[in-house]
């Protein structure tokens, strides 16, 4: 078994209305130091595999196909645990 974290984030330059609304709200709560908020997704995937290399390739494939929307999102895969 192997566990991976996939972070899906909006591509640089793509508008993030949700992040903007949260940023403004943090300002209202007087966190004036907040310059930017961007919101993404965090996905945990457990895989029946022990080979980090091939798992990484597989996860990237999954991200390209499904987990991320390549039109507007980037992703990053981290293998965090191998049992």
């Amino acid at each position: 078994m192997l566990k991976a974290n996939v972070y899906v984030t909006l591509k640089e330059g793509v508008l993030d209305p949700q992040g903007d609304a949260v940023k403004k709200s943090l300002h209202v709560l007087e966190y004036q130091g907040v310059k930017e908020v961007r919101i993404g997704k965090f996905i945990e995937v457990c895989l029946e595999s022990k080979d980090k290399e091939s798992a990484l390739r597989e996860l990237e494939e999954m991200s390209d196909k499904l987990l991320a929307n390549p039109v507007m999102e980037d992703y990053r895969v981290e293998i965090v645990e191998v049992e």
Binding site: P17, Q18, A21, V22, S25, I39
Partner: peptide, 9 residues
């Protein structure tokens, strides 16, 4: 916009 969580902001 219901951003973050509905009602949260």
């Amino acid at each position: 916009g219901d951003y973050l969580r509905t009602g949260a902001i």
